[in-house]
């Protein structure tokens, strides 16, 4: 094998719980770093993904920056894997889909309990919120899905080792959790 396999990871509208689950593969991380190199990821602080073999996406699509990052990952990664309930079906972030964006912003920044100096943030650098939260597969093509909140570390390990060995990741019903 020439060079190391390049992996990029990111969290869109997520809680980084899936990344914690990636870290939960524990000492197997040491085996992993022998054969992979992390590109854009919270682990490396590299700002943009480039020419990666595997991209791992946590979180739903809730704002314009999420869309941009997701498209960058699709462009730069040969294989894209969505992990966790938020990425797969919107999860907890998508619970705001039952309310209008105006209602959400008013509740959070103007009318909520215990607010000091209520005002709607309007810095031009802030990404614009989307009207509704979307699963990642509604924005780009996703190659593989890992459900769970978060997916168990063993499932992430199975997915990585299958992909690194050039196999289709296959899971038994006992390995699949949605919660």
């Amino acid at each position: 094998m020439k060079g190391k396999i390049k992996i990029a990871t990111t969290s869109l509208a997520g809680c980084f719980g899936c990344h914690m689950s990636i870290l939960d593969i524990d000492e197997r991380l040491i085996d992993l770093v022998d054969i992979v190199e992390f590109n854009r990821s919270p682990l490396t602080d590299i700002k943009h993904a480039s020419q990666c073999d595997i991209g791992i996406i946590e979180g739903a699509v809730a704002n314009s920056e999420n869309v941009e990052v997701l498209r960058e990952f699709r462009r730069e990664c040969k294989t894209l894997v969505a992990i966790g309930a938020c990425a797969l079906n919107g999860g907890v972030p998508a619970m705001r889909n039952h309310y209008s964006l105006t209602e959400c912003i008013k509740e959070s920044y103007l009318d909520g309990i215990g607010l000091d100096n209520p005002m709607v943030p309007n810095d031009p650098d802030l990404p614009k919120l989307l009207d509704k939260v979307h699963p990642v597969q509604e924005v780009v093509k996703i190659d593989y899905f890992l459900p769970g909140c978060p997916p168990p570390a063993d499932m992430i390990w199975k997915m990585l080792t299958d992909l690194l060995a050039g196999r289709e990741p296959v899971f038994t019903p006992q390995q699949i959790y949605y919660d």
């Binding site: 309930a85 907890v92 890992l146």
Partner: peptide
């Protein structure tokens, strides 16, 4: 169906049947 925040999770037939059938996502 938001399994992570549902009180029925783990005792839900829909969830269990879907896991049994190998559904990864909708």
């Amino acid at each position: 169906h938001v399994c992570p925040s549902c009180e029925k999770s783990g005792a839900c037939t829909l969830q269990s049947v879907a896991e049994y059938c190998g559904m990864l996502t909708a």
